[in-house]
Design a binder for these strands. Sequence first.
DNA 1: CAGAAAACGTA
DNA 2: CGTACGTTTTCTGT
Length: 928
Amino acid sequence: MTRLAPVSDSAKTAPQSTVATSPVSAPATAPATAPATGLPSGGTPRLLVVDGHSMAFRAFYALPPENFATDTGQHTNAVHGFTSMLLTMIRQQKPTHVVVAFDLDTPTFRSLEYTEYKGGRNKTPEEFYGQIDLIIKVMAAMKIPTISVDGFEADDIIATLSTQGEAAGWDVLVVSGDRDAFQLITEKVLVLYPKKGISDIPPMDAAAVEEKYLVPPNRYSDLAALVGESADNLPGVPGVGPKTAAKWLKLYGDLDGILENVDSIGGKVGESLRAHVEDVKRNRHLNHLLRDMDLPVALEQTLLQSPDREAVEELFDALQFNTLRKRLFDLFGEEEPEDAGEAHEVPEHQLLTEAGQLTTWLKAAPGPVAVDVLSEKAGLAHEAVAVALVRADSAVVVELSTADEALENTLATWLAADAPKVVHEYKEALKALSVRGLALAGVIDDTSLSGYLIQPDRRSYELAELSQVHLKVSFEAAKEESGQLDLGLEGEKKFTDAVQRGYVALLLSEHFAPMLVERGAEGLLRELELPLAAILAEMELTGIDVSQERLATLLADFTAAMNAAQEAAFAAIGHEVNLGSPKQLQEVLFEELGLPKTKKIKTGYTTDAASLKMLLEKTGHEFLAQLMAHREASKLKQMVETLKKSVGQDGRIHTTYAQNVAATGRLSSNNPNLQNIPIRTEEGRRVRDIFVVSEGYECLLAADYSQIEMRIMAHLSGDAGLIEAYAQGEDLHRYVGSHVFGVAPEEVTSAMRSKVKAMSYGLAYGLTSFGLSKQLEISVDEARTLVKDYFDRFGGVRDYLRGVVEQARIDGYTSTIEGRRRYLPDLASTDRQLRELAERVALNSPIQGSAADIIKEAMLGVDKALTEQGLKSRMLLQVHDELILEIWPGELDTVKALVTEQMGAAAQLQVPLEVQVGIGASWNDAGH
DNA sequence: CAGAAAACGTA
DNA sequence: CGTACGTTTTCTGT
């Protein structure tokens, strides 16, 4: 039995089976560790001792000081690098205790005894000044103790700490760029020694030291005494290097042994040794580290704690460390789950060979069965290779390649039957099975969809993540989603992983069931999203035909246009520049050409299209015109190139729809994205000519909703004026314009109409007067007046918009007409930016989301009608408010009527849903 | 080498 | 200082 560990155990932070994330990747295996933020959870305490100065210097030389400075001119590269290194170290090594030791500027017993000690070093660079103090401040804010002792070096403090730690039975990690630290290595003490920079820090253990220096760690100082240490200005015996020194040490045991036998060592090196015995003794004396100092900090006081948030905020503000601040809080921010889930026993599985076994298993007990489909890449799609069936107490696996006909038939029949099934990522399972000629029906839950309906704004709905978040259970099999990355996996492991995934999906599904009911999302899952997944699977597998010739022509045209524009742009300024680099463009535009400054962005001033257009109007500079031409051409060229690359062996493009990415309920399209094919410009529209009707079909049909979002606004607001306008089939914007501007409809100028249009749509996005003024290039006052006039005439809209936010604040969520929810906790945020964003989201989500629900509903209707009427025409694409179909010869009129009917009937609103239909041999021709 | 930022295409 | 996306390139920070 495999145990799924509750999250609060070590399993949460350490998937110990994977090398990359285990605390020490080499060479010693680390014991189980405690989470970075908490107390040791029964494991051995783990002490991280850092040599502050040596790491600060490493950081200083690893990062260019000119890139790290505050506005006040204080350099921070060493502070930044040091803090970054420490965070990485804490994340990777997961110490329970941390302490940093520093040297002081004052003389030490070593320099007093030997004045040249550490002499000959270069002067500390100016930029380093003050950075040690800053590091100490950072440590204070992180509540990490720092130790320095007058008259002693950090090395002695470190030696003492590691000795104390080892005596207490702890594991100790010493981070130091000083080789003297090697003498501290034991079974319990490892040294992390930075090779170069601060990120490449391999752990050194006894074996690693022996390999490198040919002596065990406890002889390292003997060896160093003989060889010398240039960093400390300690000359060794001339002619003696590590090899000779190691040979002697082996021969005589230790340094004392060698010194007792100096006279018996022959050769030139023997002579050299005899001449430098005093140096060696001095070296050995000086490199001996004190292990019994009295330290001002007890071992227990180095316990790693949560940082002082306020102090960190203040300090990092001053240091202008924003990415580090995030990393720090990410590292310490994750809160321990109060209640961990229970441990679960994943059932063992049986690999079936005979149909009878499957029949028996399927009969055994009621309740849903989880289905996990293992697939392998086969050409352009994934093909199912095995199917795992999982119940709470038992599991079976059918391997398709080895199953005999009877077994496969039994499986196929059951998969295609109504027997209740639970899956994770239904659409992918459908596709993989379909490629193998298998159907899948009776699916009552897809946890990637139910998870989405419950919480639609998550980044990911991977099984492992849902399991962590909802069940507080972590497990390892999740990564190989549906076995797609399984190349190196042994067959047996693949199967146990599949069973684990199925088991977790089953648990999640049970967990989600009451949540779906509570949120009223059951219907959306069963009657909308699940059936839609099957349609999308078909559409993805079908793909859309493209014309290779047009693709090639277009690519050549755009490339030529791009190159021409580039040449002309270079000519206009007399030199070359990377037109794709906003940074370089800024230099040319604002420094070289001295053009007026545009809108400020994080990295300077924007060079976006709107600003370039403005600059061109102001200055008429040729470079700007060519740059804009280049931008357009290169964008299109790139897009065509990407499309070309994504054409499958069947000559078609197969996009993938994501059903759980857009928080509003929309689909998204990727690989390639077919929902952002250009349409606005003449040149861009040519890209749509690439998409053509397939051989044997009559034409493409494009059907889109006319102004669906405005109609939803009219419906939701119940505004009498808007409803009246739509009821009469008037030009909405003209109608609104005539009321807002108080003129007759036929007197509405195109300028008035476009203003009104911009505002109408803007309102659905939470547009402000400021934003409107910018877009229409009018004053804020004018914009404000426009909004007021609008609302005076269409008060229903104003009341609705106001009410949406109010209601959302009360409920904590917004709803679409179909009841799809979006939770908006930020409405209560004290951060004004966040709160106002949440308010705009609250305004938009019901509108965008309702439109998404409606077209999804329409897709079900269209699919059903096509099937019921036995038509061969098929749906190919969805672009938010538009459906692209491919028409079988002779079916045009039927399908045209059916699509119009189904799209129009997808929702009963207070206003009609108008559908426009176009046909043509290409997507462009089908547009209107 | 991964991730952020900037830019830009769609509804 | 309008929403929702995906993709590309360049640059930055490891």
